[in-house]
Design a protein around this nucleic acid. Structure first.
Lengths: 230, 230, 230, 230
DNA sequence: TCGTAATCGAGACGGTACGTCCTGTCTTATC
DNA sequence: GATAAGACAGGACGTACCGTCTCGATTACGA
């Protein structure tokens, strides 16, 4: 009588829009509407920008998306998870062309971050998501995968470019390199977030230049500066 | 049906525990219980640590404090304002003794921040408050006054100490100095918050040392380094 | 932590509008609105007549009554209990004057029953309530107390009148008398209900006369009893 | 979006298990599973007995029957219609052998009714069906045909037997006879239902005897009829 | 010493969103 | 064309908090 083997794919996230899924594993019933997925995420971003995190309602999102609440809950177990995915789509278009110098690259990254954090939907959602994540490890992992990691990749990419250009010493120790990346990334992301979302002050090109300069001080080993040590 | 003449000082914040208030202005009726204020703030911190921001309920706080909801709402207009005050009391004990060098002072400040952000009540509340604040300018101002500013003071203090010790150039332009402080502060606070609350990784003494070193790179004009290469 | 002694009078039925309640026992908080009670019961009857049992919604009743759903659930734990009380008020005005003969009294009772069962709210509710009651002993008891018993009293009254008039033998055995009342009552109530609500045919004065005659003895023409006394 | 040409015999009741259907009329596609019909009706009765009317779910019935909801809705347009058919099968086995006297025949009929109304599935369904029927004439007709009529036939049969035995006057007026049957039937059915389902008391042989006696004439002790016994 | 007035605990109040459940329809692929 | 599977729109459910209100009961101060 107790549901032992039941578990008919409730709360199963929509596929990442690329995974083809093994053709045999294709479920038997009516397939989930891909249009609904998109409509829901769009509606979520729209509502977020309009009403903020606190004003965001599952029922309202469903209504905007022209979808029943059931359909929404079938895919996302909670507001937080839904918003992670809705916001994530803004972050996975991040890219960073090689601009010729580490300073220029970092400035571009910072500018890109700032641009994203200025969107009303991001403003509304980001800190709230982080706050929720501090209680829910599952959610925190998801945030890290879908939102934080894509940002971090930029920093890693910038570093790789700098090395390729010979601006930096080649890595002596990959583990230490990882940790350096971590510090740099926390610093860039954290500072921009704090500036925009907590202090509430704008990120101007001038500010970016000064912050980047601060960052590029003689971080031991980060920069290959033959003259500095000589 | 509408209240006619009543309006006896609703939502009036509790005095900052020091202002004696002009004795004439003291109302006629029964004075507010000072014990209640403290019990409420304590209960708020306790509930925050236990249940997190999302689980925090005005009714629950009232019950824990042994107080009626009315009493609570008479003093704080909303959950956010209440939590600001509850958390603020953790931040206004911040202080920073002169440790003899700028590096040591900054390390101490970072360590102090990290220590505060590790408390469960702070973890639960800080980002949520910032998130709320992004929609409510009134609240944001309050957060800035009660929580952000006391932290910033530490940085300003550290800078003053460094100048007094001759580690830094005297300020040529007070406005530029303010902006420098701003950048430094956003960087310190933002990075620590991001590290602890978003990345979810610990702030160890080693990490502090490396981060501080990164920070103390040749920020133009911050450091008085007459012989950088010497 | 577990709620041991809590139990703040949730789902406590509204008083029967007459019980004065011991003055000491008067609760401490804001007293329940008596107007709400009445508005809810009125709204229930109205909605019942309009939408039928199946169309009756707690939310709709609340809205019609100008009352929050909470208020409704504070007093009645379920739709069934609410409807019992709403319908009961129709049944507790039942009375039966002495019309001079048993036949006349019974005819009056039957007519009164039929009249009540013709009201749209009763039509909608009665069978549904009985159906619900067949699963829920608690509810069944309540139905019996509030709806069935007031009807039964009529029959008992009629019998007492008949005895007072000398139309009937005085009771030899009170227990047997009780059982007779039971049979008679089940017959009167059941038959009228079945006629009106199941067969869906009207209860005319002619039908009442014939049914009463059947009840009171040799139904003319039904039985061929050449020697009834033999 | 609207279905254009489709309409392949939706909601067409299953044949009455005896009509072979003209072989030409058999559709082209896969024939309906006859086993499914039976499984569904069995599952319905089972679920009714277990969960009651309110707990009965189309989805649950389908699952118990090992059948898709589609299959269920293809045959019965709604829960009520399904239950009518499921319950009807219990009533169409009614029969009444001639027991030699009107009293004995009626007692047998009453006992048979009571027996049926004691089954948990009938308890759960009967009044609920009647209640539903009071709003839906279509359903009411169906209930009358499948459930009420088979019961009524018993009474008619008993009457015919009694006439054949000479216990009753031959009918002078067929219309009046019909009406008499109607009254008697409403009385028998209604009383038994009320006794069992509303009053919730058992129908014992003793009760049956007393009720039948009441029905058939001078209820002992109820009426003081000095002339009747003289 | 009283009355006035604002406080207190308690809990009912109108609302709003929640997340679940069921209905009856639909869209698949399979038989 | 029937079938099993299950997604779909819609709507009611009963619960939980919100922030306000209305009680009776306390305190203080000023008349």
């Amino acid at each position: 009588m107790a549901p032992t083997t039941r578990q008919p794919a409730e709360h199963q996230d929509p596929p990442a829009a690329d995974a083809p899924a093994s053709p045999a594993a294709r479920g038997k019933g009516r397939p989930r509407s891909a249009a609904a997925d998109q409509a829901i995420l769009d509606a979520t971003r729209e509502a977020l920008a309009e009403l903020g995190w606190g004003g965001l309602t599952m029922g309202d999102v469903a209504q905007r998306a022209g979808v029943a609440k059931t359909t929404l809950y079938r895919r996302w177990p909670s507001k937080s998870e839904l918003v992670v995915d809705a916001i994530a789509s803004l972050f996975d278009q991040l890219e960073c062309a090689d601009r010729g110098s580490l300073q220029a690259d970092i400035e571009a990254v910072v500018a890109r971050f700032a641009e994203l954090l200025t969107l009303p939907e991001t403003q509304a959602a980001l800190l709230a998501l982080f706050a929720e994540g501090s209680r829910d490890p599952q959610l925190r992992r998801r945030i890290r995968e879908r939102i934080v990691q894509p940002q971090k990749v930029l920093v890693e990419l910038g570093r790789a470019n700098a090395q390729a250009r010979g601006e930096m010493d080649p890595d002596r120790d990959p583990a230490a390199a990882d940790e350096e990346i971590g510090i740099i990334f926390d610093t860039i992301a954290g500072t921009v977030e704090h500036r925009l979302l907590v202090s509430g002050e704008p990120v101007t090109p001038e500010w970016i230049r000064r912050f980047t300069t601060l960052l590029l001080g003689p971080f031991p080993g980060l920069l290959h500066r033959p003259a500095a040590g000589a």
